[in-house]
C-alpha cells in the first residue's frame, strides 16, 4: 500500500508542475493572435509531441512594443508562450536577451539564478522535476532567442 508521505510528495510535484497560474494561462491565454505588422515572426515545433508555437514581435527603436503567439499543444508549451509575450513587452532587445538567458538557465537546472527576478515565469520552473517536459516549456523561448538573434543581425 502507498504510504501517505509518497502520496503527498507526488501531489506536491504535480502541483509544482501544474501551478494554478500556469493552468490559468492555458485556459485563458493572453496575447494569443497575430500583430498587424510584426517586425519578426518565428515558428517552431516539438515534432515528437506535436507542440507548435508561432511568435510575433513588434520592435521599435530597440524596444519590444508588442508580442503575440499562436499555436497548439500541451498546457506547458502554450502557457509558457503566453507568459513570454507578457514578460517581454516593453523590454529592450538586450533586456529580453538577458531574460531569455536567465529563464533558460533556471529551467534547465541552474540553481544560482535568482528566480524572484523571473516574476510569474517562476511558476514554469516546476517542469524541472519532469525532464521530458522541459522542452515544452522552452519551445517559445527558443523562438525568442532566434528572433533576437535575427534582429541583432539586421539592426543598422
Amino acid at each position: 500500500m502507498l504510504d501517505r508521505e509518497t502520496l503527498r510528495r507526488q501531489e506536491e510535484e504535480l502541483d509544482e508542475l501544474y501551478k494554478e497560474i500556469v493552468l490559468e494561462y492555458y485556459r485563458n491565454p493572453r496575447n494569443r493572435g497575430s500583430l498587424p505588422a510584426p517586425t519578426v515572426v518565428k515558428e517552431g515545433d516539438n515534432p515528437l509531441c506535436g507542440d507548435e508555437v508561432r511568435l510575433e514581435l513588434a520592435v521599435d527603436e530597440g524596444v519590444i512594443r508588442d508580442a503575440r503567439f499562436q499555436g497548439q499543444g500541451c498546457s506547458i508549451s502554450q502557457a509558457s508562450a503566453s507568459m513570454l509575450t507578457e514578460a517581454v513587452r516593453g523590454l529592450s532587445l538586450e533586456e529580453a536577451q538577458q531574460l531569455y538567458s536567465k529563464f533558460h538557465a533556471a529551467i534547465t537546472g541552474d540553481d544560482t539564478v535568482d528566480t524572484a527576478e523571473l516574476g510569474d515565469l517562476e511558476a514554469l520552473l516546476g517542469v524541472r522535476r519532469f525532464p521530458v517536459r522541459v522542452k515544452c516549456a522552452t519551445l517559445a523561448w527558443h523562438l525568442l532567442d532566434e528572433a533576437l538573434r535575427e534582429l541583432r543581425h539586421t539592426a543598422p
Binding site: L17, Y18, I76, F130, V132
Partner: peptide
C-alpha cells in the same frame, strides 16, 4: 480539456504507462 501530453504526465505519476502523441501515424492524426 487535457492535451494528451499532459494526460501522459499525470497518468505516469499514477503508475499508469500509456502512449501519447501521433504514434507514427501523422497522416492519420
Amino acid at each position: 480539456s487535457i492535451h494528451p501530453h499532459d494526460l501522459g504526465t499525470l497518468l505516469d505519476r499514477f503508475g499508469v504507462a500509456i502512449r501519447t502523441g501521433h504514434h507514427c501515424n501523422q497522416p492519420l492524426m
